[in-house]
Simulated assay, not measured.
Amino acid sequence: MSETDQSNVEVVREATRALARKFDNNYWLDKDNKHEYPWEFVKAFAAGGWLGAMIPEEYGGIGLGLKEAAVMMGEISASGAGMSGGSAVHFYVFPPAPIVRYGSEEMKREYLPKLASGEMLMAFGVTEPTAGVDTSRIKTKATKINGGWVINGQKVFITNAKNAQRILLLARTSPRRDDKPLHGMTLFFAEMDPERITIREIDKLGRAAIDTNELFIDNLEVADHEVVGEVDKGFYYLLDGLNPERICVAMEGIGLGRAALDLATNYANERIVFDRPIGKNQAVAHPLADSWIRLEAAEGMAMKAADLFDAQQPCGAEAAAAKYLGAEAGFDACDRAFSTFGGYAYAKEYHIERLWREVRLLRNAPFSQEMVRNYISQQVLGLPRSY
Rank of each mutant, 00 (worst) to 15 (best):
V100I: 14
D5E: 12
N163C: 02
S136D: 13
A20S: 13
I254W: 02
L308Q: 11
Y37V: 06
Y387F: 15
D179K: 00
L187R: 02
I138R: 00
W39M: 05
A311K: 10
P181I: 08
Q378V: 12
E370Y: 13
M371G: 03
N266F: 04
W28N: 05
Y37A: 06
N146Q: 11
A321T: 15
M301C: 10
L29W: 04
T127D: 05
P384S: 05
I197K: 03
Q369T: 10
E110P: 04
A161C: 06
K304G: 10
L168R: 05
E221T: 13
G241I: 03
P113V: 04
V12F: 06
M72K: 04
K31N: 05
R196C: 15
R17I: 01
R354N: 10
T140Q: 02
V100K: 00
E226M: 08
N213M: 00
N243G: 09
G74A: 05
P314S: 08
L66A: 05
A223R: 13
N243L: 10
N26I: 04
G343M: 02
S104A: 03
P366Q: 02
T340S: 10
I247M: 09
R373K: 14
R177L: 11
V380S: 05
Y111P: 03
A164Q: 01
Y237D: 13
G85C: 08
R336Q: 15
I151W: 02
A297S: 15
A260S: 09
N266C: 11
F309W: 13
G48W: 03
A298F: 10
K108T: 15
G65R: 00
L112A: 08
V359C: 09
R109I: 09
K304W: 11
F367P: 12
F367K: 03
I199A: 06
I167W: 03
I197F: 04
V133H: 11
E57V: 12
V133F: 08
G153A: 00
Q369C: 06
Q165F: 01
N281V: 14
E245Q: 10
F309Y: 15
D262F: 04
P384D: 01
I167L: 08
